[in-house]
Design a binder for these strands. Structure first.
Lengths: 144, 144
DNA sequence: AGTGAGAATTGGAATTATTCCAAGGAATTT
DNA sequence: AAATTCCTTGGAATAATTCCAATTCTCACT
């Protein structure tokens, strides 16, 4: 009664309903495609994979479904920030804080020992040349 | 003898020369624009600012100069990875390791306590809803 | 079962960000 | 100063994403 084949779509339906949204074949298949091969596909790649099951789906729908899944916290988008690349000349080790209200980005200094600790989470065989840490949230207007 | 007005362009010239590149007015002004206002401007914004000093510069040159400065390690690009956004359904706290050779992206599990530590670098007034950590480098083919 | 309202999908056009390319200009080497 | 190489320019091309109007679907209510 709990591991029937219908379970996954139902869990998805529940999550969508929590956000006042509907479960649709398109959303289910997009989600299942992401679960089936966890290689961080692009929207275009998802589009290609979904089409084998649902040849009539449109790219716009794939974008819509992905956006929906991200908003329901079922999926994360890896390039968190859409839009143009930004540049900074601060070369000291620092993270970025992206203030969602104002859209501005602040530098956050990072103690070198923290960076070391972060590096230590890498399993053997991984050699990181750079680490990028980005926070998103609210910054009090007072904070710079 | 060391803080003359010519110092900054010369330092830039030195760095460029180290990479076998030339110092040009365009590169100097693009760099000075980045130093003058550290608000992580986009290429378009840099373009607009540079034009006040150098009205004939082209957008392509701004992109070229920014790329050059990034390659000389004088500037960092904040959206490290160009190209399409990628999606992953892994909701556990994890970082991403981007293998530059293969172009593939691996999930790296993050212990919750590390995330806490990372959060603690935020000064008062900053409230982070999410943290994104991305490594770039080489992964041994053996590593998954 | 039928209807109306709201939600979702579709295809295509539009926009945005970035890259490419060919031609001209400037600096460096011979 | 000729040759070579590097750089800049403008415009075209491409890639990623968003927008939009029309249609279709779904749900709730009769």
């Amino acid at each position: 009664m709990s591991t029937t084949p219908g379970t996954l779509p139902e869990a998805l339906a529940q999550r969508l309903a929590d956000s006042g949204l509907r479960s649709t074949p398109q959303r289910e298949i997009v989600y299942s495609v992401l679960l089936a091969k966890r290689d961080h596909p692009t929207a275009d790649e998802v589009f290609a994979r979904v089409k084998t099951d649902l040849p009539t789906i449109s790219l716009a729908t794939v974008y819509n479904c992905l956006e929906t899944l991200v908003q329901c916290n079922l999926v994360r988008s890896v390039n968190f920030e859409r839009g143009p690349t930004r540049y900074c000349p601060n070369l000291r080790p620092h993270a970025h804080f992206h203030d969602e209200q104002s859209g501005s980005t602040h530098d956050i200094d990072l103690p070198p020992e923290l960076l070391e600790q972060v590096k230590h989470v890498l399993p053997a065989g991984y050699d990181a040349k750079s680490i990028e840490i980005t926070f998103r949230g609210k910054a009090q207007p007072g904070a710079r």
